[in-house]
Simulated scan of single mutants.
Amino acid sequence: MRVEIWSDIACPWCYVGKARFEKALRAFPHRDEVEVVHRSFELDPDRARGDVQPVLTMLTRKYGMSTAQAQAGEDDLGAQAAAEGLEYRTTGRDHGNTFDMHRLLHLAGERGRQDELIQLLYRANFAEERSVFTEGEARLVELAEEAGLDAEEARRVLADPAAYADAVRADEREAAELGANGVPFFVLDRTYGVSGAQPAEVFTQALTQAWGERPALKLVEEEEAGACGPDGCAVPPRP
């Protein structure tokens, strides 16, 4: 079974939602048969690469809330993250463009290191004092290497604005086609969708239901042909 997760590194609920989903997946009896794929979704796609703001400033300007309201929201998110065993800095974080991070995540997907990289990006953005936005390419290459990617390959991708750009845009178009207007958005076997950072129990229910409704394999009946099994290989008689 395949689970696709549309998310953005700048999204705190994606950080929390990933932890809740993984809690459910760890307890799922068929967890070793579940493939998880991370898909791209930018919350602020029109933000220029160099436009970095404090999170509280972004929240007050984008949503028209007061600084006190924005801080209260961050404090609540910090408590929600802590309940999942996650570190979360409620002050001093930055907000910026995440397009290059998504491009690197597509590279990581091809190299089998996608989950490692997205977790490191989340940690860097939400838990560490260093800004993943202001330090630019050098910081992203450092995280890519920590995730197990080749540093030079990561640098080449970041130096080429076209590298994996189409893949990011394709993910975003697909999200729109599926009806996702926010993240995190989880799609199980292209049959069930779960929107938001739901409790682990909701993900458990969705995994169980999606697994139980997978179509059974239908065999096409043909005349007997040669095949191999535990007892050896049968040789069909010559006509």
Rank of each mutant, 00 (worst) to 15 (best):
A151G: 13
T60N: 03
G193I: 07
A68I: 10
L140W: 13
W6E: 03
E213Q: 15
G196Y: 00
R173V: 09
D150G: 06
A163K: 13
K23Y: 02
A154K: 02
W211P: 01
T57Q: 02
A70N: 02
G182F: 06
P236D: 05
S40E: 07
G73W: 12
A175P: 01
D94A: 03
G92T: 03
F133S: 08
Y88S: 14
Q69S: 08
V235C: 14
D8Y: 06
M58K: 01
V16A: 02
Q71T: 15
R31P: 11
I118P: 00
A108D: 08
I5G: 03
E42F: 00
A82F: 00
A48N: 06
Q198F: 03
K18E: 08
R238N: 14
L120Q: 06
E172S: 08
Q119D: 15
P161L: 07
G50A: 01
A176F: 06
Q53R: 13
A144C: 08
A82Q: 12
D46Y: 07
E213K: 13
D8K: 05
A147P: 01
G196E: 08
D46N: 10
N97G: 08
A165P: 04
N125F: 05
G136K: 04
A138F: 00
A159I: 00
A72S: 13
R31N: 12
E201G: 10
V194A: 12
D46Q: 10
K18A: 11
L104N: 09
T67M: 15
R155W: 04
A127Q: 04
A27Q: 11
H30S: 15
E146L: 14
N181L: 02
Y15R: 00
W211K: 00
L143S: 02
A124G: 05
F21G: 11
T57A: 03
K18C: 02
D166R: 11
Q205E: 14
L140N: 08
C233D: 12
F99P: 01
V187L: 15
F126G: 09
